[in-house]
Design a protein around this nucleic acid. Sequence first.
DNA 1: GGAAGTCAAGTCTCG
DNA 2: CGAGACTTGACTTCC
Length: 293
Amino acid sequence: MSLHRIGYPCVSLLLGRTTNHDCTLRTASPEKLRALIRQNLDDLRAILAHNLAHGWRLFRVGSSVVPFGSHPINGVRWWDEFRADLREIGALVRAEGMRLSFHPGQYTVLNSPDPGIVARAVDEIAYSARFLSELGLDFSHKIVVHLGGIYGDKAAAIERFCETVDRLAPDLRRRLVIENDERSYTPADALVVSQRTGLPVVFDNLHYAANPGPGDLDDLLGAVFATWRAEDGPPKVHFSSQAAGGRLGNHAADADPADFKTWGERWSRHGEFDLMLEAKGKDQALLELENHL
DNA sequence: GGAAGTCAAGTCTCG
DNA sequence: CGAGACTTGACTTCC
């Protein structure tokens, strides 16, 4: 299998640590935010060391690593105050050939007809990009976003997404990658946007199962992998198994080894890739999976 | 200390 | 047109 790096998002269940400690807006204060950032960076460092010990070199940083990182309530100059920690973590990542990413949540919508929503989405991208840059990481360390809503006219919605991306500062645009989702945008849609914007495409197998759209799977995968240029690093994929008995698209607690083998071999036909396991069981599920291979 | 309620934000569907 | 789902863990409050 041409699997290069493997990893999981945000939380280590094995260590009981997370990069997502946060607070409510109501109780946020500079002192509290500082304490949370400190805790998140400490946990990030511990998680990366633990991951290395297992040979896991891919990790998604939680969007709350700096709580309210793109919100006006957070005026902490975290890039100054935690410079030493950020540099140390970044040096470890580079020295060990690890790859980090962000994946902002459902509220980050770059193609909304509402300019205020788009502006806040751009702020969230800017904060995430800044975090990776303050670590000293190159543009292979990505920010993964979905394309957003449809608003009754997919062609117009895609057009708005592309225009927003075209207007982004280069150091933000070069961090951005787009992912197919489970109800609105298929891999074929993401490829159209990629051709327009130059953004690489992340292929998610479970979203594909729920919302395959047009196109032969192997043709799609070939085209998706080809969207990654040298400066972007190897193609990234998201893998998860369907939860038994859950709604279509629900992530299972664990990775199904047969499912993993099928998709792993399918992806391998198109070249080397990095794989993010999106299971509720996080690194526990990853360990389980490796024990069954 | 455990249990229940709450949380910045957006979009879509359903009643 | 308003309410709830989506997805979701961690915090906050209550007892």
